[in-house]
Design a protein around this nucleic acid. Structure first.
Length: 805
RNA sequence: GCGGAUAUGGCGGAAUCGGCAGACGCGCUAGAUUCAGGUUCUAGUCGGGGCAACUCGGUGGAGGUUCAAGUCCUCUUAUCCGCACCA
């Protein structure tokens, strides 16, 4: 036996697979298709993180197993390469982002290839490739044409020192991450996408897909459907204020009203001189504007606010005049930007009322509202509520909605927390938004024939100091003519967010080189939906929701054949540093995958990534634990010296082999990779005990192990004279009858405590079991002189005899 | 504050349905192999008691349901993740 030389073996088979195109998917095959997908990486300058291979290895194992089971498998990879870090690196080092991206991709690709993933590299995609983003732009134009893209004044984070727009991520504790200066809100006209139009469908269609439950829950909570009512309050100043509430039943308990500091009518009131304390109000508004969203939503903080002197609202059910406040806990972006304050039955309102000494009127009995807000809607009974008094909360909700509709001061309303998607970025390294602004024709789409609208290659892509995109300084890009009227016009200079390219990338894999369409109808019909998509929980509410939204839109306009993009979604846990904390450069606990591969080889790295723990949970890296996986690979290699000349499976191992096939086959489907590996280790221990194994035993173990450790098994397959590539050899099958024992050990309990064990035939019935249990010496001793109260017999498991002594 | 999770030996974890807690691996201990270190092999390894057979206790904490609870229910504590105070 020659020694196990993983360095040569890894490289040898990676080359051979590529040469033979073993993992190339066919768009024209009689086999059943299987589309496995992992989130394509952002090729950062740091290179691959040991977290990346966890997801990639997991789906590689599934993809490889499916190939061995005879499926036509598509397992693709690409690069989500637009984005901030590359741009910032480029600016700092004076290297063009395109060059940075190219280098980073080359590094990433080499690292991925060193792990032997069965990606179909002939379908590699890159979101920054004009041939790719042509179609990202095309989708945007379709959204625009259907009225789903629109412009809106939105606030952006503005660093007062860098004089540029910051991403939320760049704002740390209210100051600029880079320079530490104050960050303020600045209003800018931005492109928005109407994802809210799809809110209900994004909830409803979750019933049709197989996502792990916490992903569904998180998406539903993020979309946040609530049913309530719009209630209009007249005011003493002749402008009605409409509030949204989910508790219209508590209307009689409304003792004040709160507007968001940005509430538009306030400006009118100020102009009209209706507000007595303008200076105080403006100071508060300015303070609120300075606060980052993070600060404003800091929950532990004290309630703050300012009363609008001179403005009072009139409660429509009882005609009471109530004071009107502004406070930053009310957000202009949710509901109507105005709420009614019911301190007795909402804890935030209660705190606010205590602080400003406002009356607390109980309208639902069941608590002590002077001590705390009573918010239980299940048991409460209405009091002090006119015609609703005596009703349950549930009935009152309906009664008041009917009443307000009848009286014309309110209506039923379904609301969503979900907000429209801000689609503009004042940045260089993104897809240009293909819109021209013409003074005569307004916003006009760039003709589809002119796509891709390429990002101009320039030397300077630094942020401008007026908050415009760097593209705004490039006259040759900005100045154009209107596609409709031909008059001089200006191009949109904002670019798209990184999320754009990743919202449809999986479709491109079906037909990556198509220049006529984002992918051909045939290819999409064949490959979509994605059968299995694995990714991180951190993408649950942004990427996953955005791509579902785009997919539904593409379905609506007849581009894709399915309502949902992904049939199944699973999620992996994070790999933490050895100290149990998140891996990061600043913590100094980053593990470099290159070093692991260098020291142990790709197969050991892959095995360890899967053996590290429960796939769905986070797990700390352990350098010493990797050794266990290396030993396992070494021992499998060493079996070469133990091969006997038995024909077929060895009689002493045959049951164990069938059981292991079953276990590994099932565990891979359940993503229980750690226990699948444990089962193979246990089989190896049995083989060691047996002292020798047959070639058939060996070749079955190798095929089971192949998806996990493809290189060493491919080499062993060749050594043992297997036909073709092990990577596409037939997946072993098992015989259920061979997985069960003829005789089993059954536990005998007395009063729930294990007292003995008896060996019986596997199919022994209850009476036989009970008789055997009672006949057993040890249990008989326990039963001696006691009264049997109850006898429980679970065939195949145990006998429990309950006695009284 | 809201939402979502998690808690099992020294460590990572295992335990279809409520049915033998601790599979598998790391580490550790002892022994063998080796010039030595590493490697490899053998045995042991949840805690208390016992030479042992065995026995008592044990899955963050407190209750409960059950013949039987890591698993179900109620309360509670700690930790992690997300967040847009969602009215």
């Amino acid at each position: 036996m020659i020694p196990y030389d993983y360095k040569n073996i890894d490289k040898k088979w990676q080359d051979k697979w590529e040469e033979a195109g073993v993992f190339h998917a066919s768009n024209d095959s009689d086999k059943e298709k299987f589309f496995a997908l992992v989130e394509f990486p952002y090729p950062s300058g740091q290179g691959l993180h040991v977290g990346h291979p966890r997801s990639y290895t997991a789906l590689d194992i599934i993809a490889r197993k499916r190939r061995m089971q005879g499926f036509n498998v598509l397992y693709p990879m690409g690069w989500d390469a637009f984005g901030l870090p590359t741009e910032n690196f480029a600016i700092k080092n004076h290297i063009h982002p395109e060059v940075v991206t190219k280098n980073n991709i080359a590094h990433f690709k080499a690292q991925l290839q060193a792990l032997g993933f069965s990606f179909d590299w002939s379908r590699e995609i890159n979101t920054t490739d004009p041939e790719y983003y042509k179609w990202t732009q095309w989708i945007f134009l379709q959204l625009f044409k259907k009225g789903l893209a629109y412009k809106k004044e939105m606030s952006v984070n503005w660093c007062t020192s860098c004089k540029c727009v910051l991403a939320n991520e760049e704002v740390v504790n209210g100051v600029c991450e880079r320079c530490g200066s104050e960050v303020v809100h600045k209003v800018k006209s931005q492109w928005m996408l109407k994802i809210t139009e799809y809110a209900q469908r994004l909830i409803d269609d979750l019933d049709e897909v197989d996502y792990i439950e916490r992903v569904k829950t998180q998406q539903k909570n993020w979309i946040g459907r609530s049913t309530g009512a719009l209630v209009t309050f007249k005011t003493n100043v002749n402008h009605d204020v409409t509030v949204y509430t989910t508790r219209p039943d508590t209307l009689f308990g409304a003792t004040y009203m709160v507007l968001s500091p940005e509430y538009a009518q306030i400006e009118e009131w100020k102009k009209e001189g209706l507000i007595g304390n303008v200076a105080e109000v403006e100071a508060y508004q300015a303070e609120a504007a300075r606060k980052s969203d993070f600060e404003r939503t800091e929950m532990a903080k004290d309630k703050t606010g300012v009363k609008l002197d001179g403005v009072r609202a009139i409660n429509p059910v009882n005609g009471e005049e109530i004071p009107v406040f502004i406070s930053d806990y009310v957000l202009v972006s949710y509901g109507t930007g105005a709420v009614m304050g019911v301190p007795a039955h909402d804890s935030r309102d209660w705190e606010f009322a205590k602080k400003f000494d406002l009356p607390i009127i109980e309208v639902v009995a069941g608590g002590n509202v002077q001590e705390a807000a009573f918010t239980d809607v299940e048991t409460g009974v209405m009091v002090n509520s006119g015609f609703m008094t005596g009703m349950s909360v549930e009935d009152a909700k309906e009664a008041i909605k009917d009443y307000m509709t009848e009286q014309g001061f309110g209506e039923r309303k379904v609301n969503y927390k979900l907000r429209d998607w801000v689609f503009s970025r004042q940045r260089y390294w993104g897809e240009p938004i293909p819109i021209v602004h013409c003074e005569h024709c307004g916003y006009v789409p760039v003709p589809e024939s002119e796509l891709p609208l390429k990002l101009p290659m320039v030397d300077s892509y630094e942020p401008t100091d007026n908050g415009e995109s760097p593209l705004a300084t490039i006259d040759s890009f900005v100045n154009t003519t209107c596609p409709v009227c031909g008059a001089p016009a200006k191009r949109e200079t904002d670019t798209m967010p990184q999320w754009a390219g990743s919202s449809w990338y999986f479709l491109r894999y079906a037909d990556p080189h198509n220049s006529e369409a984002l992918a051909s109808k045939e290819a999409l019909n064949y490959w979509t939906p994605v059968d299995w998509y694995n990714g991180g929980m951190e993408h649950t509410t942004l990427h996953l929701l955005y791509s579902r939204f785009w997919h539904k839109f593409l379905y609506d306009i007849g581009v894709v054949p399915t309502k949902e993009p992904y049939a199944r979604r699973t999620s992996h846990g994070m790999i933490l540093g050895e100290n149990g904390e998140k891996m990061s450069k600043s913590r100094g606990n980053v593990v470099n995958p290159d070093e692991v591969i260098e020291q142990y080889g790709a197969d050991t790295m892959r095995l360890y990534e899967m053996f590290i723990g429960d796939f769905e949970k986070s797990a700390p890296w352990s350098t010493s634990s990797i050794k266990g996986c290396k030993r396992f690979v070494d021992r499998v290699w060493g079996l070469q010296d133990m091969v006997n000349d038995v024909d077929g499976y060895s009689p002493v191992l045959v049951k164990q082999i069938h059981r292991t096939i079953k276990k590994v086959t099932e565990d891979i489907e359940g993503m229980k990779f750690n226990t699948a590996i444990a089962a193979m280790m246990a089989l190896l221990n049995d083989i060691d005990k047996a002292g020798s194994l047959s070639k058939a035993d060996y070749m079955t173990l190798i095929r089971l192990l192949s998806p996990f450790a493809p290189h060493v098994t491919e080499e062993l397959w060749q050594v043992l004279g297997g036909e073709g590539f092990c990577s596409v050899a037939d997946w072993p099958t098992y015989d259920e009858a061979m997985c069960v024992d003829n005789e089993i050990e059954v536990v005998v309990q007395v009063n729930g405590k294990v007292r003995s064990r008896v060996v019986v035939t596997a199919d022994a019935d209850k009476d036989t079991l009970l008789a055997a249990a009672k006949a057993d010496e040890k249990s008989a001793a326990e039963l001696d002189g006691a009264t049997i109260v109850k006898e429980i017999v679970v065939p195949g498991k145990l006998v429990n005899i309950v006695v009284r002594k």
